[in-house]
């Protein structure tokens, strides 16, 4: 049973008179516990695909099954609920709420889920501990380094125990050393907690941390294979 099942998904944007085919029938499935990186040049359709996987956007054609539930026909609030419970987002620009403490940022998904205040606090502290930020819960985003901010974002993605983390170029704003630390955190979460991670990147070095690499070009998947380093390791 696949966690994510995309069946010939297409997406057409209409801009005035011009129709843009951003996705031209993409079919793939991702099983629970996978660590997938999605690569491709800008305009290849990878962002559109990620938006659809993240239930931020709806496909114009095809079907998207998330844990065997067809989400392609769902309304705004239903999708918001799916995002809240099943998907944790990690963005390139961190996207933490400004003037809001790390703790409160991590509490936010639970707030929208309706978790009682006391429980929220405990679980948020726990999630911050998992990403190694237990001493920084009262810091504001502007008092944290880029790497620390991204850890807060990861804690926020973890806190509702979502089975999937969607990370859109999570190391794009970070230096190499911090990038490696963040990627190691993802690897650990993938290995120990069995969280399915889907990572968008255009850096081959970063993609190396994943187990499977999917490449997009012109709205189609052009390759879907085991990540190069692992392939090499498996062969050698």
């Amino acid at each position: 049973m696949a966690l994510i099942e995309a069946k010939s998904i297409s997406k057409v944007y209409t801009m005035g008179d011009i129709e843009v085919n951003a996705l031209k029938g993409v079919s793939l499935s991702i099983a629970k516990g996978e660590f997938v990186s999605v690569m491709g040049a800008s305009g290849s359709g990878k962002s559109t695909f990620m938006n659809i996987l993240g239930c931020l956007d709806k496909p114009t054609g095809g079907k998207y099954l998330l844990e065997d539930v067809d989400v392609s026909g769902m309304g705004r609030d239903e999708l918001a609920d799916i995002r809240n419970r099943k998907i944790g987002f990690v963005f390139q620009g961190f996207n933490l709420l400004p003037r809001t403490t790390a703790l409160e940022n991590v509490e936010l998904p639970m707030f929208y889920k309706g978790v009682p205040a006391k429980e929220r606090m405990g679980r948020a502290m726990e999630a911050l501990k998992k990403v190694g930020l237990e001493k920084r819960e009262m810091h504001y985003p502007n008092q944290l380094s880029g790497g620390q901010q991204q850890r807060v974002a990861i804690a926020r993605a973890l806190v509702n125990e979502a089975p999937i983390i969607l990370a859109d170029e999570p190391t794009g704003n970070l230096d190499t050393k911090t990038s490696v630390e963040i990627m190691e955190l993802f690897v650990e979460l993938n290995n120990t907690a069995g969280i399915t991670i889907i990572l968008v990147t255009h850096e081959p070095d970063i993609a190396e941390f994943s187990k499977r690499t999917i490449k997009f070009l012109d709205g189609r998947v052009i390759s879907d294979e085991m990540t190069a380093s692992r392939r090499a390791r498996a062969n050698g």
Binding site: D77, A80, D81, R83, N84, N95, L96, L97, Y112, K113
Partner: peptide, 16 residues
């Protein structure tokens, strides 16, 4: 706007 986007992404519904 961006804050609203973040809230929506992590699960805020219309009425939230």
């Amino acid at each position: 706007t961006r804050e609203i986007g973040i809230r929506m992404a992590i699960g805020a519904k219309t009425w939230d």
